[in-house]
């Protein structure tokens, strides 16, 4: 034990310099030459800088809505509901979300509501929704903004992000970018 104590302490110290000094500094340096200096990708909006990868709450009828969130999209933290698939209380909550959605979107048939719109994400900050989730909101937005449905359908198609290399992973839409593009339509 004794013969190992001093070498252990010194080795720890020199490794601290390498792993807690040199390594993070190197990565920080690389980040400086990356898009937006490693501070997270941002986009300019009418209210200033926003983060592309951090989802937001949209309540107004004239915007596409995000998924439910266990932390109300407060990115100071992050969190999920962690409800079990069999939890009766949780299932009642999902039922209620469906009802609320149907009331505000009377044009939509229940069997067209995709499951991502009525379930909370893992991070509580999911910036994306499925393509179907955007499509079923078109009728409501067209009515509240007085824009033609076909125009919005085209917008959703333009904003749809294809799988990586066309073959890997799901299709998706970034809600923030979609709504910024929506505001830009005139």
């Amino acid at each position: 034990m004794k013969t190992n104590l001093l070498p252990s302490i010194i080795l720890t110290t020199v490794l601290l310099v390498l792993l807690c000094g040199a390594y993070p500094l190197l990565m920080w340096g690389i980040a400086k030459v990356s898009p937006n200096s490693g501070e997270g990708f941002t986009v300019e909006t009418t209210n200033g800088k926003n983060y592309v990868n951090i989802g937001q709450t949209f309540n107004s009828d004239k915007y596409f809505w995000s998924r439910p969130s266990a932390v109300e999209y407060n990115a100071a933290g992050s969190g999920a509901s962690n409800k079990a698939t069999t939890n009766a209380e949780y299932l009642a909550e999902v039922e209620k979300r469906i009802e609320d959605f149907m009331i505000k979107n009377p044009e939509v048939k229940k069997e067209d509501i995709p499951v991502d719109l009525i379930t909370a994400s893992g991070s509580g900050l999911d910036p994306n929704i499925s393509v179907q989730a955007a499509k079923i909101q078109i009728a409501r937005i067209a009515k509240s903004r007085g824009i033609e449905v076909s125009r919005l359908e085209q917008l959703v198609a333009e904003q749809t992000q294809q799988p990586l290399l066309g073959i890997l992973g799901p299709q998706k839409i970034n809600v923030l970018e979609l709504n910024i593009a929506l505001d830009a339509l005139k």
């Binding site: 949780y90 991502d116 379930t119 909370a120 893992g122 991070s123 999911d126 179907q132 799901p170």
Partner: peptide, 10 residues
Amino acid sequence: IGAMEGKEVR
């Protein structure tokens, strides 16, 4: 699209 509670769309 599956069991999406606690999962991310991307």
